[in-house]
Each structure stands twice: as structure tokens, then as C-alpha cells.
Simulated scan of single mutants.
Amino acid sequence: MAPWDDFDAIFSFNRNFVYDGKVIEQITSNRRVLENRLFADRLLALLGVKAVTKLYPPRSNSDLRTLVGHITSSSLDIHHKQALIYYILKDCRTAGDAAPHFARKCHLPEKYRLFIEGLWNLDRLEFRRAVEFLTEPSIIPTFPDEILYALTLSNLPKHDDSLVMAYYFTVSPPLATEKVQKAFFATLCRASITEAFYFTRKNDESLRRSYLEQLIVLVHKTTAGQIRSKRAMELTSLPLDEKEEQWFEEALLQGSAKALHGAKDTVMMRRLATGKLSGLSADLESLGGKKVDGLNWDVLKQSMPVRNT
């Protein structure tokens, strides 16, 4: 029997195999959509090969042989190599069951196969199918933050916030970078302002404050309408502690939400909701006589009990 890492044995269905032009076009297009890095690129980077985007997708039989040679001659353990070959064989649309046949022949562990199925589907922008594989309990999380971030990309045609949440609650990615933190928290905010708020409290003080400010900005950037009104009501009704109250007002009066429409109104609504109408700043006092939803601020203030704390 030919060794598993022999090119002609791997591609026994067609030793002169060449990637279909439409497959190459799809891979290249999807790479752009995924911010210029496929999960295949990440896998191939483990080989230590530079210029991965020139290596994959291969554009000729010679390029394919070079790619497979890089994989089989690498220092990766045997199952990682076989998993990469399995990924490549899944690209071969005309090869029938070449990929599963290879996995059976090599006795590729199921957790490796499932992981590759998940990444391959991610690279094809088939997110629901990808999450089905990537949340299997047997899989050891690899690239968890990168996978979560890809699922948060809301400009993609099959984006679904529920998949982001399903992956997060199953895998518990570390959220190790600011980019991933912001992307995931934006998804959480869209799902529930209240749940997003309680999530902020699971983090250290600086990140708590950053998240709260992001929450405030998201509410104020929501398109005017019923959803924005509901989010604004939730925001102004949150059970903020003393420190959070301070962050809340600073974000709206001096921070990143300062220039957003309705920022001062939100502070005043919060003050009204909590009865804390003493010690208003000049900016807030200037709202006197202004109408919100048909109600005059002065009338609202006069109708509310005043707390001094």
C-alpha cells in the first residue's frame, strides 16, 4: 500500500488534478470578506510557510503538489498534517468522497475531522453548518477568538447573532483582544441591553467602564424607532451603582457619546428616573423648557421628587 503522504496516492482519483476556476474565485472572494485571512491561511501558517496567500489556493497541478509537499514535509504531528490534507481534499468538488475516504484510510481522529469540517465551512461562509461542528464537545478549542470574531461580522450575507451567542456560551472564548471584545459585546448589546450590562460586571474595572461606554454609544446610534426607544428605556432603567452612575454621565457629557443625538436627554431621563435632580450642571439646566416626547423638561422636573443623594 502506498504511504498516506504520497501525492499520487492522495490524488489517486486524478493525479493531474487542478482546482476549478470557480473554486479559486470563491476562495479568493471569501478571503476578502473575512478581512483577508481564511482559517485555511491560519492552518497553513502553522507550517512556517511565508506568503500563504500565494500558496493557497493552488492554481495549477504543480502548485497543488508544492502545497501538499509543504504539508507532508512539515514538522507538525501526523494528525495535523492529515487534517490539512483532508481540508484540501474537501475543495475537490469533482473528487466524490475523496476526503472521507482519506480520513478513513488514515484513521483520522474524529475530533480532527470535525474541527476541519467547521473551519472549512467557515471559510465557505456557511456559518450555521460551521457552528454545528465547532461546538462539538470533543473538539479542543483552537482559534476560538478568531472564530467568534468571524461570526460577528455583520456585513456577511448569512450573519446571525444567535450563532455568535451559541458559540460563545458553548466554547467560552477568552476575548483576549480589544477587537474581539468590542465585536462580541456589540452582539450581546443587540440581544439585550440588560444582559449586556450584567456582562460588564464580570470584568475588571477598566474593561467594565469601556463596555458600559460602548453600550451607551450603541443605544444612541440605533436607528430612530421602536427598537431605539426600547433600548433607551432599558438603558436609563439599569441598576447602576455609584461608580457606574459616574461613568454613565461622564460618557454622555464628556466622553465618546457626548456628540451623539440625545446624549444630554439621556442623562436627564436617568436623573428623572432616579429622582436625582439636584446639582444639575449648566448643560443639563439649559434643557429647561425643552420638550421630549411632547413633555416639557421643566414640567417633568417639577413633578418628580428630588433626592439629594
Score class of each variant (00 low, 15 high):
232 A>H: 03
232 A>V: 02
232 A>W: 01
233 M>V: 06
234 E>H: 02
234 E>V: 05
234 E>D: 02
235 L>K: 00
235 L>S: 00
235 L>A: 02
235 L>P: 02
235 L>W: 00
236 T>C: 03
236 T>S: 02
236 T>M: 04
236 T>R: 01
237 S>D: 07
239 P>W: 02
239 P>L: 01
240 L>T: 05
241 D>Q: 05
241 D>P: 06
241 D>W: 09
242 E>T: 03
242 E>I: 02
243 K>D: 12
243 K>V: 07
243 K>A: 13
243 K>C: 13
243 K>S: 10
244 E>N: 07
244 E>W: 09
244 E>I: 07
244 E>V: 04
245 E>Y: 06
245 E>T: 02
246 Q>M: 08
246 Q>N: 04
247 W>P: 04
247 W>Q: 03
249 E>F: 11
249 E>P: 06
249 E>A: 12
249 E>R: 08
250 E>C: 04
250 E>Q: 05
251 A>R: 11
251 A>D: 12
251 A>P: 11
251 A>L: 11
251 A>C: 14
251 A>Y: 13
254 Q>E: 10
255 G>S: 08
256 S>E: 15
256 S>P: 11
256 S>W: 11
257 A>N: 10
257 A>P: 11
257 A>W: 14
257 A>Q: 14
257 A>E: 15
259 A>F: 04
259 A>W: 02
259 A>D: 09
259 A>G: 06
260 L>K: 13
260 L>M: 09
261 H>K: 07
261 H>M: 03
261 H>R: 05
261 H>A: 09
262 G>K: 06
262 G>R: 10
263 A>K: 05
264 K>T: 06
264 K>D: 10
264 K>M: 11
264 K>C: 07
265 D>T: 14
265 D>P: 06
265 D>M: 08
265 D>S: 10
266 T>V: 08
266 T>P: 08
267 V>K: 14
267 V>G: 12
267 V>H: 12
267 V>L: 15
267 V>M: 13
268 M>L: 15
268 M>W: 12
268 M>N: 14
268 M>R: 13
269 M>H: 14
269 M>D: 15
270 R>C: 13
270 R>N: 13
273 A>R: 13
274 T>Q: 09
275 G>D: 09
276 K>V: 10
276 K>S: 13
276 K>T: 13
278 S>N: 11
279 G>F: 12
279 G>E: 09
280 L>E: 01
280 L>P: 04
280 L>F: 03
280 L>Q: 08
281 S>A: 09
281 S>L: 10
281 S>Q: 05
281 S>M: 07
281 S>C: 08
282 A>R: 07
284 L>I: 11
285 E>M: 01
286 S>H: 01
286 S>F: 00
287 L>H: 00
287 L>N: 00
287 L>D: 00
287 L>S: 00
288 G>L: 01
288 G>P: 03
288 G>Q: 05
288 G>S: 06
289 G>I: 00
289 G>M: 01
290 K>M: 05
291 K>W: 02
292 V>Y: 01
292 V>S: 03
292 V>C: 05
292 V>Q: 06
293 D>W: 05
293 D>P: 07
294 G>E: 11
295 L>M: 15
295 L>G: 14
296 N>A: 09
296 N>P: 11
296 N>Q: 15
296 N>K: 08
297 W>R: 04
298 D>I: 04
298 D>M: 12
299 V>Q: 07
299 V>A: 15
300 L>W: 10
